[in-house]
Simulated scan of single mutants.
Amino acid sequence: MFRFRKVVLASAMLALAGLAGAQSTSNYPGVGRAATPKEVAAWDIDVRPDFKGLPAGSGTVAKGQDVWEGKCAQCHGIFGESGEVFSPLVGGVTPDDIKKGRVANLINPGYPGRTTLMKVPTLSTLWDYINRAMPWTAPKSLTTEEVYSVTAFLLNLSGVVPDNFTLSDKNIREVQDRMPNRNGMTTQHNLWPGKEFGGAKKSDTGNVACMKDCAPEPKVASFLPDFARNAHGNLAEQNRPVGAQHGVDTTRPEVKAGDVVPAPVAAPAAAAAAQAGAQAKPATAFKVDASGADNKAALALTQKNNCTACHAVDKKILGPSFMDIAKKHAGKTDYLTGKIKSGGAGVWGPIPMPAQTLTDGEAKTVAVWLASGAGR
């Protein structure tokens, strides 16, 4: 009995020592807590090039086509070839590339573009990105089977696997040996940090920091002269509507520091009220009809449901601004509620809007706000 008590006491002391050690390792005492193993596991879903972290499972090309057409094609095209919203995923790969592991069109200056399957060397990258980030409107919503299936479908579109293929954690390493650009990546350059990645020993440059006789900071003065500003049409409309470079709106004069930018034109509903003699309220105080929705609630819903990834209040991003929608569909609450829920394409251009997962009540709150002028 005495030995049993000693074991219990020793175990308790070890547990306390472990707890104290865990707390002492924190660089920010009193702030937060250590993540639990379950919380870490929920985030630790990456798949390495050696396929460590890959979950067990499988998926067929046929299943992948069904998932693709329902959840992916609206942005990437039926065959992964669309470049309207994002860069094309499929194209430019030949049977010879699959045999050699180097995509010839990557060094062909006459080839018009670079697709994902032309560039990506590791199959784990493709699987991991689909699993973590797709579909765009609902990341991490695909099941393991669906991720395997969509990956298999993309590989089939590029001729890497046959139509009746089933991709799984058991055969994915064999498929890696057929990736078109598997030999196209190298770590034998100075961009890698050291020998642990096979990188070069020397740094990129041999420059030495100089802190004397420094040149004055240059002042950027490049601009488009007025006579040439819109000579080739509106540059903002000639760029891909994603990414950092959107192009300047050359239909308007250049805005310089100190310029007064005119306020957006009032929405039709507000203009009609003003003509009728009603005192229009400031946009920040505007409140919509008897549904009880107000600007703050509607704007919060657009942020909560990622509407603001494609729409801004007063400017075009991927889709039209909320104010432009309000002008075009003033008073059409029911119509807007239906469009928010069902999505669609063709009303504002070819870029599709996927069906949204808002509740009917949330969709109506946003629709009422839009139909009433999209005030702030």
Rank of each mutant, 00 (worst) to 15 (best):
G373N: 09
H189C: 07
D46K: 11
E84A: 11
L167R: 13
S149V: 02
T187S: 14
P49F: 01
Q74T: 06
A10P: 02
S158V: 02
P354L: 06
N234A: 07
Q356I: 00
Q279L: 04
P29Q: 06
F322K: 05
A17I: 05
N207V: 06
P55H: 05
Q356A: 06
A266S: 11
H76R: 08
G243M: 08
F2I: 11
V175Q: 12
N164E: 12
E145D: 14
V93M: 02
A283H: 00
P216D: 09
D289I: 02
L358E: 10
T137F: 14
G247I: 07
K71P: 00
V248C: 03
A273D: 10
S141G: 10
M1W: 06
V208D: 04
R5F: 13
A20R: 03
A257G: 13
P282E: 13
A73Y: 03
Q176L: 10
K256Q: 14
T137G: 10
T357Y: 08
C310K: 09
R229K: 13
A152W: 04
I130D: 07
S24Q: 13
A22Q: 08
F165V: 00
V67T: 15
N105A: 15
K6T: 03
G277W: 09
G331D: 11
L9A: 15
S372P: 00
R178E: 02
I107W: 03
P49D: 13
F4M: 14
T333N: 14
P268N: 04
L89H: 05
D128L: 00
A290Y: 00
D294L: 08
W192A: 12
A236R: 15
L370V: 08
T151I: 01
A269K: 12
K219P: 00
K364Q: 14
T151L: 03
A263S: 12
V255Y: 05
P135K: 08
S141A: 11
P352V: 01
I98G: 03
G373C: 11
P37V: 03
T333P: 03
L336V: 07
Y28V: 08
P216T: 05
T333L: 06
P55S: 04
A374R: 09
F223Q: 05
A152N: 03
N105M: 08
N164C: 01
F4W: 12
T308L: 05
R132Q: 12
C310Q: 11
L117N: 04
E39T: 02
A300H: 02
K100F: 10
H76Y: 08
G92S: 04
D66W: 01
G21L: 14
A35N: 04
W43E: 15
K212W: 09
A374P: 10
V248H: 09
S158G: 12
R229V: 07
R173A: 14
A266Y: 04
I98T: 09
I340A: 05
W348S: 12
G18R: 04
K315A: 14
A35D: 15
A371H: 04
T122R: 14
T251E: 07
C72K: 07
M211T: 15
K315D: 11
P135N: 03
M323A: 15
W68P: 02
P225S: 04
D289W: 02
F86E: 10
D97V: 08
Q245D: 11
E174W: 01
A293W: 02
G258V: 05
R252S: 09
W43K: 15
A273V: 02
